[in-house]
Simulated assay, not measured.
Amino acid sequence: MGQKGFYYNSQVCTGCKACQIACKDKNDLDVGVLFRKVYAFEGGTFPDVWGYYLSLGCNHCKDPKCVKNCPTGAIYKREKDGLVVQDHEKCIGCKMCVWSCPYERPQYIEKEGKVGKCNGCADLVDKGQNPACVDACPMRAIEFGDIDELRKKHGNLCDLNVLPDSSITHPSITINAKEEAKNKNVVGTKSY
Results as ranks from 00 to 15, higher is better:
Met1Phe: 12
Gly5Tyr: 04
Asn9His: 04
Ser10Pro: 00
Gln11Ile: 09
Gln11Pro: 00
Thr14Asn: 10
Gly15Lys: 02
Gly15Met: 03
Cys16Ala: 08
Cys16Val: 01
Ala18Tyr: 03
Cys19Ala: 02
Gln20Phe: 00
Gln20Gly: 01
Cys23Ser: 08
Asp30Pro: 05
Gly32Phe: 05
Val33Phe: 04
Val33Leu: 09
Lys37Gly: 03
Ala40Leu: 12
Pro47Asp: 10
Asp48Asn: 15
Asp48Trp: 10
Trp50Gly: 06
Trp50His: 07
Tyr52Arg: 09
Leu54Asn: 14
Leu54Cys: 11
Leu54Gly: 08
Ser55Gln: 14
Gly57Asp: 11
Gly57Tyr: 07
Asn59Ala: 10
Thr72Ala: 03
Tyr76Pro: 03
Arg78Phe: 07
Arg78Met: 12
Lys80Asp: 15
Gly82Thr: 01
Gly82Lys: 02
Gly82Ile: 03
Leu83Val: 05
Val85Glu: 05
Asp87Ser: 12
His88Ala: 15
His88Arg: 14
Lys90Arg: 13
Lys90Val: 08
Lys90Glu: 11
Cys91His: 07
Cys91Thr: 09
Met96Ser: 14
Cys97Asp: 03
Tyr103Arg: 02
Glu104His: 13
Arg105Pro: 00
Arg105Thr: 12
Gln107Met: 12
Gln107Ala: 14
Ile109Gln: 07
Ile109Asn: 06
Glu110Tyr: 07
Glu110Gln: 13
Lys111Ile: 08
Gly113Gln: 07
Lys114Thr: 07
Lys117Arg: 15
Lys117Val: 00
Asn119Leu: 03
Gly120Ser: 05
Cys121Glu: 00
Leu124Met: 14
Lys127Asn: 12
Lys127Ser: 11
Asn130Gly: 00
Pro131Glu: 01
Cys133Gly: 06
Cys133Val: 05
Cys133Met: 09
Ala136Lys: 09
Cys137Thr: 08
Arg140Ile: 06
Ala141Asn: 06
Ile142Gly: 00
Ile142Tyr: 01
Glu143Thr: 11
Phe144Leu: 02
Gly145His: 04
Gly145Phe: 02
Asp146Tyr: 03
Ile147Asn: 01
Leu150Ala: 03
Arg151Ser: 10
Lys152Phe: 01
Lys153Pro: 01
Gly155Gln: 08
Asn156Trp: 04
Asn156His: 12
Asn161Pro: 03
Val162Ile: 15
Pro164Ala: 10
Pro164Cys: 09
Asp165Phe: 04
Asp165Glu: 10
Ser166Ala: 13
Pro171Lys: 04
Ser172Asp: 06
Ser172His: 13
Ile175Lys: 01
Glu179Asp: 15
Lys182Val: 08
Lys182Glu: 08
Lys182Cys: 07
Lys182Met: 12
Gly188His: 06
Gly188Ala: 10
Lys190Leu: 15
Lys190His: 09
Ser191Gln: 14
Tyr192Pro: 00
Tyr192Glu: 15
Tyr192Ser: 14
Tyr192Cys: 14
